[in-house]
Design a protein around this nucleic acid. Sequence first.
DNA 1: AAAAGCGATGTTACCGGTAACATCGAGACA
DNA 2: TGTCTCGATGTTACCGGTAACATCGCTTTT
Lengths: 344, 344
Amino acid sequence: MSYEDSGKTTTPPRMADVAKLAGVSKMTVSRVLAGRDVSQRTQKLVHEAIETLGYLPDASAGTLATGRSEFIVALVPSLASSNFADTVRGLNDAVSGHGLCLLLGDTDYHLEQEALLVRTLLRHRPVGVMLTGSAHLDETRRLLRQAQVPVVETWDIPDDPIEQSVGFSNVAAAAALYEHLHQQGYRRIGYIGGASVLDHRGQQRQQGYLQAVAAAGAQPRVMEYGESPITMSHGGESVKRLLEKWPDTEAVMCVSDLSAFGAIMECHRQGRRVPGDVAIAGFGDFEVSRYCTPTITTVSVDPYRIGRRAGELLVASAAAQRLGLPRAQTCDVVEFQIMAREST
Amino acid sequence: MSYEDSGKTTTPPRMADVAKLAGVSKMTVSRVLAGRDVSQRTQKLVHEAIETLGYLPDASAGTLATGRSEFIVALVPSLASSNFADTVRGLNDAVSGHGLCLLLGDTDYHLEQEALLVRTLLRHRPVGVMLTGSAHLDETRRLLRQAQVPVVETWDIPDDPIEQSVGFSNVAAAAALYEHLHQQGYRRIGYIGGASVLDHRGQQRQQGYLQAVAAAGAQPRVMEYGESPITMSHGGESVKRLLEKWPDTEAVMCVSDLSAFGAIMECHRQGRRVPGDVAIAGFGDFEVSRYCTPTITTVSVDPYRIGRRAGELLVASAAAQRLGLPRAQTCDVVEFQIMAREST
DNA sequence: AAAAGCGATGTTACCGGTAACATCGAGACA
DNA sequence: TGTCTCGATGTTACCGGTAACATCGCTTTT
């Protein structure tokens, strides 16, 4: 055990300590840290003092004095979904280069939890907030509006945007997938998704399916089962139930690639060939869909890019706000793409 | 657009505003928020004022005044790995109930980046820090020691612990998997992992393999390929190379389930049966391993639990520190378990 | 040579809370 | 009735930085 560990409670060094050691005023130390005009000689003295003492400036004090923090808030429905983890990663990559760091919140798919997190995290006066989805409580909107903080909604195209957004239409994407299957000749097409109305994106995909079914003049076959986040086991159970209820189903669309994979494995267990007996498509273009057998037809959406773009917008908005400029109102639509693979 | 949006830059309300509206002093407002003894009538007045103004206390000011923040820092090598995302989720679940929130950092498997993040994030005076792994730069250790902040290292059992730890021996786990395969009768056992020395856990698993090989008096067959985080495609390529170099290999251990899955799919493409022609085992018990065909033999480790436990330890340490008590020095060993499945 | 300009540094006040101590009024008690 | 006690509330100072302005010495301008 080293010396510092021995129970002594020494106060960590402050800027005043650095100033005293360097023989200058606090303000000069502050200027050196901010990279403002200070003579070479003084800079060197101050840096040496900082090094000697192991000084780390206190962020709270800085934030309080300037009214500006270094936080970006990121709220996701669940970190257990690699989709959202990737989005957070993209966001982080976009903002960390600007000296910003991430305050992470997990809403667990509950809007009340989202509102609570917004309330809690806004107390840190973040310079930007990334939300997932476009469904929010009025309270959430009110809090964000009052805080006058730049906001980006992701993973959707909001009807009533708070400010900016980066996403795609889950309705349109699901409908496009249906049409792709229809073009391939499939007619009796089912859908499996979660039973929770809280998963707004899941609900929208289902809605896209229903719209496409209606447009094709067909009958819907929807099997709702399991709570979000949807896993492989949900997919297996769902496809079993769906095929029991509608045995002549030719193709199944799934709310995510994970459930599609689970569904395919269940079909294999039941001796059904995919796509020979039943075709199965997913959503999200997860890694597994590119490497499993059969490879899975899916909708590709690049979650990392969504997060990255959201981060760029927030950085830009924060800069604009600092300069007193009006903030942009971008609605950034990211492309989705139907990936036709072996499973359909 | 509502009134607040109309370009006017109104300052958000402060505690002084609340106090004035309620007809009391700032201190009384502060007491109400802290839930200290204030008369019912005054409490009601204050709460109404808070509600009316939409007041949100400023966390920086509070932190500065009390010297206590509400942050827990979480550093992971990569959020792209669901393992670490799950650990972060567990950590979040453990600490969010105590009013703490997560400051997230992604080290990208680089110790220099870790040190930089520690330096940056310590400026926010977190009440606890969760690190991944036991390999850290001296600078990282020095910074953490000087900050006197509770630290938990995860995913390993450190030889030289900074303070506390929650994890398991990656060496022992890999060796145990080797022995399991050996008991099943496999003799010519290979190993595939990443080529990057930065992935310390991967290196340790390889070391465990090498130790077990030596103990069994066999010859090692190691194929290193790809940068961390290791993906399915790395597994496919690796197994191809390994089987080209040592065609009579009977079994292959993989650094992760993802590479194991990729390896199995590659074998199928080559017309090799798994486990008939070659057995393949993974590491981590990812969801895919339980649902794919064949199901994958692996080492199960529960990343969520590691994070959760780390969070509990940090909360306890933070509480102890606040009361001036000595902090515990727990080295928490979480169980790993060999999951024998169809692939071996 | 006096005034003006300018770079480098110091001084003061303030950001928005909270700890610690002061104060005040009402009921208890002698 | 006067003093003591105690709960409720107010006052003051301070946490650790930074903005804004003041100051100082030296060079430039006329």
